[in-house]
Design a protein around this nucleic acid. Sequence first.
DNA 1: GTCTATATGGAGATAGAC
DNA 2: GTCTATCTCCATATAGAC
Lengths: 209, 209
Amino acid sequence: MARQRSGAATREAIRAAAARLFRDHGFAGTSVRDIAARADIDPALVIRHFGSKELLFLETVRLTIDDEPLLDVPLDSLGRRFIEVLLDSGEDIRGVYLALLRGSGNPQIADRLSASHETAFVEPLRRRLPGADADVRARLAGALVGGLLYALWVVGDEHLIAVGRDELVSRYGALLQQLLTPVPTGTTGTPGATAPTSPRPTAAPRPRR
Amino acid sequence: MARQRSGAATREAIRAAAARLFRDHGFAGTSVRDIAARADIDPALVIRHFGSKELLFLETVRLTIDDEPLLDVPLDSLGRRFIEVLLDSGEDIRGVYLALLRGSGNPQIADRLSASHETAFVEPLRRRLPGADADVRARLAGALVGGLLYALWVVGDEHLIAVGRDELVSRYGALLQQLLTPVPTGTTGTPGATAPTSPRPTAAPRPRR
DNA sequence: GTCTATATGGAGATAGAC
DNA sequence: GTCTATCTCCATATAGAC
């Protein structure tokens, strides 16, 4: 019979349905009718409560990493940790990231993506970085991090996925770490090697622990 | 008036119009009518010649990078060079990359993106890499490269763009180089602070095969 | 080969009775 | 606040006359 609900409950039902559908099928792949059906209400109510499909998207699809306590580790292991947190994040983050990315043809969604990238991928790192060029390094790190998610989630590189979480954390984390705490040439007591071009011995997959 | 043209000319006109519009406005943002209008023909002809909008997209939107400049560069400067080539690539690559990315909700377009990523970003690097784990390293490199384009073109990180081409090449190139020729501790000069002075503008001429 | 006309379906959004 | 009914617009795709 689809009994009437209170206004607040309806609003919540719409929000929940929208969040889920947008996350799973993106902005274009979700219709107002789909949302209404899932919330078991009339399509007109969706517009009535949120004004438009676009506003509803912007209200429900937010990228947040609130595992920030997990990032409370020494700076020299922040790289690994950050990758770890991302890879262990649930389906939520993945879906939201994909929805924002694929919807970024829409200017408003593009703005939201831009802000989300800043908040989730750049800012948490920049806060920890010392040095005058901390901002640039954090932004390069944001690009690097985004690249991993792009390769795994958007491209869906099967061979990269098959590498497995632990090795990805180790290798890509080390790469990120390079950006957070660039290894200076002199600290580890290496002699001032003047011959830069050395024929590469193979392997050595872990430049830094 | 819209006088008649030959079949081949019409087909070409459609193809050209589609390539341009898809690249500028994406798959969802381009209608068959838009394409027909730009080609100055009837919308029905678009379908008649190419079967569907989707097939037309797949036929006209291809990501190709000219990897010739990468062939003769020494392995230890391939990282910088690769970033250079990407950043100097024209509006074409950017548009195609964005169209594929934003259209990747469509399974066929996702497949195309996957293949393009492999061909353009992974394969050219893997060819040059020695070692048993060359494949993995090339894929990690592909992720890294994709991340830069993502940050610059999708997110549109203004502060990162403002860094400028040369410094991006230098810093992000050094990062990529870490993956191509890993070094336990820095040997090839400071990784990122200033341009490490081995420009090697264009290498020795070499016959194409 | 080309074009006119149209089929068919789905979208977002609205009007107005209850 | 909610729902029924509908509006308007636009999409891809097709049928059939020239």
